[in-house]
């Protein structure tokens, strides 16, 4: 089968549409997670969604919708624990992380058959997406993209400085919950593409790549979305071509391609930052706290010929218009 025929197949086109949209949606919301230094939140939600998928499989309902519901609940729970409790975000994530994965494996074990199909969600199976799934994916990812781009000024302000946002009259808690819910939705959207275990990569790696080269938030989020779409579509195409020779899964290919972009961008980022530093002028008018004077062969002491001035707990010696104070083996300017 030639590549042209292969890409003309309906399942392949469905896979391409799903890959493109998830590649755009995941980094869009991922940028706000990275901005709040919650880069692993996507991973935590992904693990919670495992339980949702398992419940959907066992009860013979839609695994996607079950995952959406459970992931949203999990995300809201993480946000609530983080905000209300003494626990910090990190620990809240860890609790949900393990609970979700253990719950998913336990539930799927109850019904022996579903363990194999759980794999499809853990590692992604772009090529088994049905027409109905594609429509759900399209609706959900367009909603995620629309909200995270449309509300970007508000979400940016909340993620940048929560206290300022509160005094500016923004509903900080509502926006935080919105980010959590959007993250949960994009996790469930992306689970068919890259799988629940790798979902966070599509939310974080394009952002990490683009911020190597950008100076503003707007270009960071735009570049992350472009990179995410490039990585997911490119990864799918690569995996398709490679499948003539070997059995290559699209999910890991997408993630590895995104990481390859990072590997390319990283040294460029270091180089440009270095250049930016070199072009910086010296910090204007810094006042040294401790200014040691240069070579000082003369040793001050009582009767040395310089005017002695008591200065708090020590003695300064007036020396050509400045005052020198002994400090260990050298003299300081006072």
């Amino acid at each position: 089968m030639s590549p042209a025929e292969l890409f003309a197949l309906p399942f392949m086109q469905r896979a391409l549409i799903a890959a493109l949209l998830t590649g755009l949606a995941a980094p869009a919301i991922g940028t706000f997670l990275v901005q709040r230094r919650l880069a692993l939140m996507g991973d935590g939600i992904g693990h919670v969604a495992v339980t949702g998928v398992a419940i959907g499989l066992v009860t013979n309902t839609s695994p996607t919708w079950a995952a959406v519901v459970v992931a949203v609940l999990g995300a809201v729970l993480i946000e609530t624990i983080r905000e209300r409790g003494q626990t910090n975000g990190d620990v809240a994530l860890a609790l949900l992380f393990y609970g979700g994965l253990a719950g998913g494996i336990l539930v799927s074990g109850i019904d022996g058959q579903s363990a194999a199909s759980l794999n499809r969600y853990l590692f992604g199976s772009l090529t088994t997406i049905s027409a109905g799934d594609v429509i759900v994916t399209m609706v959900l990812s367009i909603a995620v993209i629309g909200l995270s781009v449309g509300l970007a000024p508000q979400l940016f302000a909340v993620a940048q400085d929560q206290e300022f946002a509160r005094v500016a009259g923004l509903q900080v808690r509502a926006y935080n919950l919105l980010v959590a819910v959007l993250a949960a939705v994009s996790v469930t959207v992306a689970m068919r593409t890259v799988g629940l275990l790798l979902v966070s990569a599509l939310m974080v790696v394009p952002v990490a790549t683009s911020q190597q080269l950008t100076r503003s938030f707007r270009t960071t989020i735009a570049a992350a979305m472009v990179l995410g779409a490039f990585a997911s579509v490119g990864g799918l195409v690569l995996a398709t071509f490679a499948s003539y020779k070997a059995n290559v899964a699209p999910g890991p290919t997408i993630v590895l391609l995104a990481l390859a972009c990072y590997v390319v961008a990283w040294p460029i980022g270091i180089w440009t930052r270095r250049r930016a530093r070199l072009s910086e002028p010296f910090a204007e008018g810094q006042i040294p706290v401790h200014e040691a004077c240069d070579e000082h062969p003369h040793a001050h002491g009582p009767g040395c010929g310089h005017l002695a001035v008591p200065h708090d707990d020590h003695v300064d010696y007036v020396h050509d218009g400045h005052r020198h104070a002994e400090h260990g083996a050298h003299y300081d300017e006072h």
Partner: peptide, 27 residues
């Protein structure tokens, strides 16, 4: 207008001076 006590105006993602100041316009 509130200026919180903060060591830095930066967060986890790069933001330009213009963008941070524009956030103050949200009111």
């Amino acid at each position: 207008g509130y200026v919180p006590q903060r060591a830095t105006a930066a967060a986890g993602v790069p933001a330009s001076v213009w963008e941070v100041v524009a956030a103050g316009r949200l009111t």
